[in-house]
Every structure is written in structure tokens, then in C-alpha cells.
Design a protein around this nucleic acid. Structure first.
Lengths: 188, 188
DNA sequence: TAATATACCTAACGAATGTTAGCAAATTTC
DNA sequence: GAAATTTGCTAACATTCGTTAGGTATATTA
């Protein structure tokens, strides 16, 4: 791993733990065991790190869900696979995922806008699956947009409690979340 | 509304919009139309505002859910009412809710710890309802803790998209979320 | 009307912020 | 072994930060 990658990784951990704004370059330097000014031999600015992380994660989420999508499959199957792909990316990148979810708002223009439109596009993918499920009669939801956001909320909360050493594996998490979203908690 | 309350309200809006750390006292002063130093005629410190908001919201959530709880009712009914109460508090205080959910981590000790234990206690209330539902056979969930967090994730995502002028009223939101959490998306 | 409290001001403090300049040692490449 | 690249340093910059001191005008209360 190059020094630059090391810096980005350490910064990502700090951004998750303290937030982007509350993380100073001197905090980051301290964590790396060097002086703050030395970091600038490797990166252009603090925000550059944030940009890299946000857009790399966007790409990872896109690639992962695209790879498992098959438009001719049932909506249930498509959603199940999309959820599993999302959970996999998230659990393999817990810190970067947290940055992707909460720190993007500190991006300056034009990164802020282009990040948001990427995120919208990603959400639209899920929305499309759910809508097609409703149209085919597989799903019954109060509102497609609302249902999509509820699914996302479940997905995006995972990073707050997931620990690799915990009792649920990523695929069990995906399985359980899919079960809850499809069947709910009612016993029948 | 006293000047102090006005300051807290304006600060809350900024904390939601930009985050606690990225909001300067000069930002806040500017929004109020006064000088930064003038704020200190009314408050002791920047963090005092954060403390007030976090603990006030904790109290509001507790009181709202306690008020509608009836231990002898069915788990379904108890959960339905708890969700409705939570959504009501949240939609009536969107900005303070966002601070409650994301900015509490900037509290210093001992506030940080005591906030977290309050939050845990609140979550335990929901967890208790779900557990009793599982024991009575009303609910069937993969894991009680997991189910609780999934419910919370749906609840706590609302503030990111809720707009008072939107098409869903708070009680419709509660109704729809309860439906999804109890029945899932599957049409059967 | 005198006393008190409220609300805000200017000026400034010490500390922390992101970043640049200029340089030196070590490591890698040719 | 020379050249180039990588990695780091010290010193310092301009700016912004939360906050304090000391003061004035306005509004409220006695």
C-alpha cells in the first residue's frame, strides 16, 4: 500500500470517528506519526481526501449492484441480490461507507452537486426494482418512494453497529434484512 | 420566545445544515444579525447549546412514547403507538431531531456518556416491545436486536426527507412505516 | 425617577486551522 | 554510481476559531 493510500485510509477512519470538520490535519498527521506539513508531499488538500473516498465508494456501490443485476429476473430476486451486494460493499468498507453516507455534505462545488446526482442515480436503481415489483404484483407497498427509502434506511444504518467480529456475517445480515423488508415482523 | 430560545433555535438549524463543528459562532451571529461576542450575553458556550438540544430531545422522545404505552396491550398495538409517537416528535422537531441523531457525538464528557445511556434506555423500550411480541407469538423476527435497529433505522431516516409541505402527513408516515415493518413489501 | 436587567457593541486574546516554502535524507530507478 | 523520486522535516503564513473584557444604550421594575 502506497503512502498516499495509507493517508487516505487513516483519514477515513478519523472522518468516521470525529467527522470531517472536527478532524484536523494535525490529528491526521499525529495518527500517521509525521508532521502535518509532510502530508502535503502526497496530497493536494484535505478535501481531496474526502472527494476520493466519496466518489470511490459511489463507484463501488454502483459496480457491485450492477454486477448482480439481471433485468429479466423477478423483482424479489433482483432486490435480494441488490441488498446483498450493498451490504457486502458496506461491511467490507465500514469506515469509508460512513464517510460516503454522512460526510459528503462537506464537499465543495462542483463535487457536492455531482455526488448528489450520483447518489440519486443509485437510489433510482432500487426504486426501479421496487416499482417493477409493484407493477408485476409481487410487491404491495404504501408508496414506491417511501418503500425505497425505508429499504435504504435499513441498509445505511448497518455501519453504525456492524463489527466484523460480531455474531452476524455480512450475508446473514443481508438475508435478515431482506427477510424483514419482504415479510415484516408479523408472524403469519 | 426569549432571545436565548431564539439563539438555540437558529443554532439548531445551522447544526443540522452544516454540522456542529462546521458551524462557527460567527455563522450563528450572522444568522441572528448580531456580533458573535453578543451571543455570550445569553449563553455560556457553544457546546451548551448542543447539550440543551440533545437532552431536550431525549426527554421529548421519552415522554411521547411513555405517554402512549400501555403494558397490557398487544405488542402490535404498543409498537404501532410507539412508532406514531416517535414520528410525531420527529416531524415536529426535524432540525432538533437531526442534531439529536448525529451531533451528539460532539458532546464532551460527562454529557457524551450520559446521553448515550439515555439513548440506550430509549432503544431498550422498543426492544422490550418487540421481544414481548416474539414471546407471545405475535412477531417472528430473525433477531430481536436486529429487528429493533431496523425499525429505528426507518424511524431515524425520516428527518432526511420529511418536509411539512410534502404529500405525506406525519400520521400517514407512521402508518406506512408501521405497515412496512409489520407486513413487509411482499404481496400476499 | 432611580435602580436594575436586557441586549448588543468594539476590541482583542490566545489557540487552532489549512497550507506553503525551502530544504534534507533516504530510497528507487537508470 | 548518478539521477530522480519519495518521504519527511522546520519554520512560518494568513485566517478563523471560541471566548473574554469592558463598555453603552434601551427597556423593565421598584
Amino acid at each position: 500500500m502506497s503512502r498516499k493510500e495509507q493517508i487516505e485510509e487513516t483519514a477515513t477512519a478519523l472522518f468516521k470517528a470525529k467527522g470531517y470538520s472536527a478532524t484536523s490535519m494535525r490529528d491526521l498527521a499525529n495518527e500517521l506519526g509525521i508532521e502535518a506539513a509532510s502530508i502535503y508531499s502526497h496530497i493536494k488538500s484535505k478535501e481531496e481526501i474526502l472527494q476520493k473516498v466519496c466518489f470511490r465508494m459511489a463507484r463501488e456501490f454502483f459496480e457491485a449492484t450492477d454486477a448482480v443485476d439481471s433485468p429479466q429476473a423477478s423483482a424479489t430476486e433482483r432486490l435480494t441480490k441488490a441488498i446483498a451486494a450493498h451490504v457486502k460493499v458496506m461491511t467490507q468498507n465500514t469506515e469509508a461507507s460512513a464517510v460516503f453516507l454522512y460526510e459528503w455534505r462537506h464537499l465543495s462545488e462542483p463535487y457536492h452537486s455531482s455526488f448528489l446526482s450520483l447518489r440519486d442515480k443509485y437510489e433510482a436503481h432500487f426504486r426501479g426494482i421496487i416499482r417493477s415489483g409493484v407493477e408485476s404484483g409481487e410487491f404491495k407497498v404504501p408508496d414506491v418512494k417511501f418503500a425505497t427509502m425505508t429499504v435504504f434506511s435499513g441498509l445505511n444504518w448497518i455501519h453504525t453497529w456492524y463489527k466484523p467480529e460480531g455474531k452476524m456475517t455480512p450475508s446473514e445480515i443481508a438475508e435478515n434484512l431482506t427477510y424483514m423488508m419482504l415479510n415484516g415482523m408479523k408472524n403469519n
